[in-house]
Design a protein around this nucleic acid. Structure first.
Lengths: 158, 158
DNA sequence: TATTGTTATACTCTATAACTATA
DNA sequence: TATAGTTATAGAGTATAACAATA
């Protein structure tokens, strides 16, 4: 699995004047997690540049599509988004004609969230693109087994 | 920890009115990465509550300790922090008496960063605490082999 | 001309309080 | 009393532009 030698810091004797010693920092799990997450999100943003779609917006569209008619609070809570902040997010999607807020008949306080026809078409394209991104990511990981391994390990950190 | 099996979505036939279908969203690598990273950072913040220390500040202290005398730009760049934003960060550490900015003799534009005596003492305590956090995290992962596996997989995502 | 540290500024994300209308 | 959606606001984190001093 591991090619060979993990490049170790310059031997303690060789005090180079340019390379910094980063082992202590990069040895931390949280640090590596953060760097990886930032990198993956950067790739997402670049990959979805023409879609003008952020990761959070994409997950909201997917979640509404899989759970049409749900309240804002329900969708927001699943994603760990505060309902106050979710207002702005869903408002943006509504302005783009992708999402509808339909006043609930049973509970006049609530809005039932639905994708518009345009929203469904948009999401279908986005999901096809996302599938290619995931595919590429799985390849980088080393295949489906490596992906499953990663997801399992990540779950243990929550 | 986990009661029994991985709770799968309600079988397609049983359309419960409360549980949401989240498989599509949670199947994405980026989504899981983000959730895990947020969780790990939350644990860091809780664990270092009395230290009033954020992950970025901790990594800066570690990096200065391992590379005393380096310029702000060098430390900032390694951590992916813009030098403009690094000014505020290092200023805070200086105000707390942990870091010194010593004007460089060779390059009068630059500040050489050093830990103060108090900074070294503080970092020693923080690192001991961090070691316990890492230990706990490794246990959650399933041991040192699982940790190595995770770091290897994360590296492939960068 | 280029770099270092700095200031100013803006934009995103996130968090809390408080309001309204309903329940 | 509690909840759903909303507004306002404040705090981080991050990004760019521009400047003075120095290289």
């Amino acid at each position: 699995m591991n090619q060979s030698a993990k490049t170790f810091p310059p031997p303690p004797s060789a005090e180079s004047d340019d390379a910094l010693r980063t082992e202590t920092t990069t040895g931390a799990i949280g640090y590596r997690l953060r760097r990886a997450q930032l990198s993956v999100f950067q790739k997402f943003l670049a990959f979805f540049d023409e879609f003008k779609l952020r990761p959070a917006e994409y997950s909201v569209l997917v979640l509404i599509d899989d759970n049409p008619g749900r309240k804002q609070t329900e969708i927001a809570e699943v994603l760990g988004i505060k309902r106050a902040n979710f207002v702005t997010l869903v408002h943006g999607l509504e302005e783009r004609g992708l999402v509808e807020r339909i006043p609930s008949a049973q509970d006049k306080r609530a809005n039932a969230l639905h994708l518009t026809e345009a929203g469904r078409a948009f999401l279908a394209t986005a999901q096809a693109r996302h599938a290619r991104l995931e595919e590429e990511t799985v390849q980088r990981l080393g295949g489906p087994a490596a992906r499953a391994q990663l997801l399992e390990l990540l779950d243990r950190l929550i």
